[in-house]
């Protein structure tokens, strides 16, 4: 039976994992290769690395890091952050990334999804959507959540699938950082409207939140950062808990 996936996410700046405590205070929490190796050997099903600096100069640092990660890690990993061209994707896949995620660049130029899917295959193209609930509806935000678009999340997710996305990474800005649980309503709507897997992100605080997003939210995978980085939740313990709730996981 296909299992629900648990995915730790690492934000990378200058070759280190960082975690924003708030907008002004970004704290280093570890080495991406060592941390990735730890997660891989402690039950993570996949990893996500996001380059949060993403200037041209810093991108080279990230690229050599991707190569080191690929050499060390024996499970799949996705990389994202500032990817906007076929050349960006080609370099990351050549370095050994299994999948790439695109966000703002896909909203700006939806044809990019099709171009990437045709060139590299849908299986490695993840479309990341940052969404926010406003006045009862969910809208797409870009540029790291700074800019609102008129796109409704459900419409954009469907369009991304039609254009060739292989997976959707859906982050709720309302929930992100709250530790009050995932946005189960929009996650369920997107997951049930699409035929491709949906990774839920934003709001994980307890093990029950993961169970909820897999059952109520119909998510195929759940992503989290700080609860794993700070060992508030250990993945083997989480998986045992989920398994006891009759949620199928890889143990």
């Amino acid at each position: 039976m296909l299992t629900k996936r648990i995915i730790p996410c690492m934000d990378i700046q200058n070759g280190k994992i960082v975690k924003g405590i708030n907008f002004l205070n970004i704290r280093e929490v570890g080495d991406p290769v060592e941390q990735g190796r730890y997660y891989a050997s402690h039950g993570a099903d996949e990893l996500v690395y996001l380059d949060i600096t993403a200037t041209d100069e810093k991108r080279k640092v990230f690229l050599s890091l991707v190569r080191e990660i690929a050499q060390a890690i024996n499970i799949p990993f996705t990389v994202g952050g500032g990817i906007s061209t076929i050349d960006d994707v080609s370099a990351l896949l050549d370095a050994g990334a299994d999948k790439i995620s695109i966000n703002s660049a896909a909203v700006k130029n939806p044809k990019l999804i099709t171009e990437l899917a045709n060139r590299f295959g849908s299986q490695c193209i993840v479309v990341a959507i940052d969404t926010k609930n406003e006045e009862g509806d969910w809208y797409v935000y870009v540029h790291g959540g700074k800019t609102k678009t008129p796109l409704k999340t459900i419409d954009w997710a469907k369009q991304a699938e039609e254009l060739g996305a292989g997976e959707i990474l859906l982050t709720s800005m309302n929930n992100d950082g709250t530790k009050n649980g995932f946005a189960n309503d929009i996650t369920k709507r997107v997951s049930q409207s699409l035929n491709i897997p949906v990774i839920a992100s934003g709001g994980a605080g307890t093990m029950e939140h993961f169970a909820d997003v897999f059952t109520t939210g119909c998510a195929d995978a759940a992503l989290a950062a700080s609860v794993f980085h700070y060992k508030e939740i250990e993945i083997p313990v989480l998986k045992k808990f989920l398994s006891e709730q009759n949620i199928s996981v890889r143990i």
């Binding site: 296909l2 299992t3 491709i196 897997p197 890889r250």
Partner: peptide, 8 residues
């Protein structure tokens, strides 16, 4: 869903 993605 199709594709079949993940651990089985």
């Amino acid at each position: 869903k199709v594709p079949h993605v993940g651990w089985n």
